[in-house]
Design a protein around this nucleic acid. Structure first.
Lengths: 215, 215
DNA sequence: AAACTGACCAGAACGCACTTCTGGTCATTT
DNA sequence: AAATGACCAGAAGTGCGTTCTGGTCAGTTT
């Protein structure tokens, strides 16, 4: 577990690690390099993280926590439940896509080196996202926007699963194609899922543009 | 491209390769071994296949062609469009799951060694499956079972994408969990997708049991 | 006393030379 | 004409020496 003497130092180490992971990938990243990049001594890294793997996994955790935060924000933003749900489902995919554009090699390496740990963390992240989705589905059911059957948790899980197919994990960022094309496929899928909730919507609706850099 | 002097010999070679792939994986499989297992001379393998990779990829092609054939059969079987569609979507996942139970290590190896060729073949298989799905969706639209919007091709593509999340590719067979649990998740997803077509169905329906061996 | 540092070192990773294996070829056999 | 299996270039494997690095902790700094 991470010990947190100074959260700012921890954050600086994660920033540094993110940069080195993006540039060199996981194997070639060294703790010495991260420490230097963060402006701390090498041993200081171990005041915050258990191991090199923990550093790398924590970078992914931080990204996923950002996704969860964003979903929380979208869930409580103005708009109908369907509109908000649409934004959430699209964001969870596109935010990861954008992160993966800068980290593709290191993600593959991490998967190769620490598959189980990574998949477990992923499962936890996905579960948290499904929980937020379920909450909004339940809200939509309560106000009559969505049909009451199946239970909100079931639909939420199915929707997370469905959109998982478009995450840059089994297919690389390059293999997923251009961001615009991915967005189109994502929109089509999300519309079908929303229709499944009893909310046939407009045939075309653009995904929220959360890109930091277009493909 | 495969040259086919004798289709029965070709089939025997593929059977042999399938057995060795399942037992040894791709790297450890040798052409000498396949030839011996098939009861032909080593050079004979090259009368049918271009390379060792071609042998392995052709095994996967054969499996996928089996899936497509099955989908075709289900598409023209008795039942409502929704029932048939449900069977098709479930079968495409579970047939691959069952194949992967015997071939998990070799699939990962093949992906590592010949990723591009394999993904291209996959795309072609998926496209063919989407075509069959679209045809049935169109039929359902024509008879009023499914809503007319979005176009059949769009919905079909989204449904193939969604169910792709449950294929044993990004997650291993072991990671996907027990077959029964996978079937449950698949059912939930397929019901939501069918509901999206304008066909809210019963909350629970068992996937067709196509298992050769239960998990 | 607590936080930070960087030298230390066991074992992991790398590089290289040598050995063994094998995918693809093709002269020979059927 | 189709099938075969010996051949061989180069791929893969092995063993060994060298270099690198993750994790540790005594010493230093705050």
């Amino acid at each position: 577990m991470a010990r947190t003497p100074d959260p700012l130092t921890r954050s600086r180490i994660l920033d540094a690690a993110d940069r080195l992971l993006a540039r060199d990938g996981f194997r070639r990243m060294t703790i010495e390099g991260v420490a230097g990049e963060a402006g701390v001594g090498k041993g200081s890294v171990y005041l915050h993280f258990e191991s090199k793997e923990d550093v790398a996994l924590s970078c992914l955790d931080r990204m996923a926590e950002g996704v969860v935060r964003e979903l929380g924000t979208l869930a409580s933003s103005p708009g109908t439940p369907a509109q908000r749900l649409r934004s959430m489902l699209c964001s969870r995919v596109l935010m990861r896509f954008d992160y993966a554009k800068r980290h593709a090699p290191s993600i593959d390496e991490k998967l190769a080196v620490m598959r189980q740990a990574l998949l477990e963390r992923r499962s936890a992240h996905f579960a948290e996202e499904a929980r937020l989705v379920a909450k909004l589905v339940a809200e939509g059911q309560a106000d009559g926007s969505f049909r009451a059957d199946p239970p909100a948790e079931t639909s939420a899980r199915a929707m997370v699963t469905a959109t998982n197919a478009l995450l840059p994990y089994s297919l690389s960022v390059r293999e997923l194609g251009r961001r615009a094309a991915l967005s189109t496929r994502l929109d089509e899928l999300v519309e079908l899922l929303l229709a499944g909730l009893g909310h046939p919507g407009p045939a075309v609706r653009k995904s929220p543009t959360r890109s930091r850099r277009s493909s």
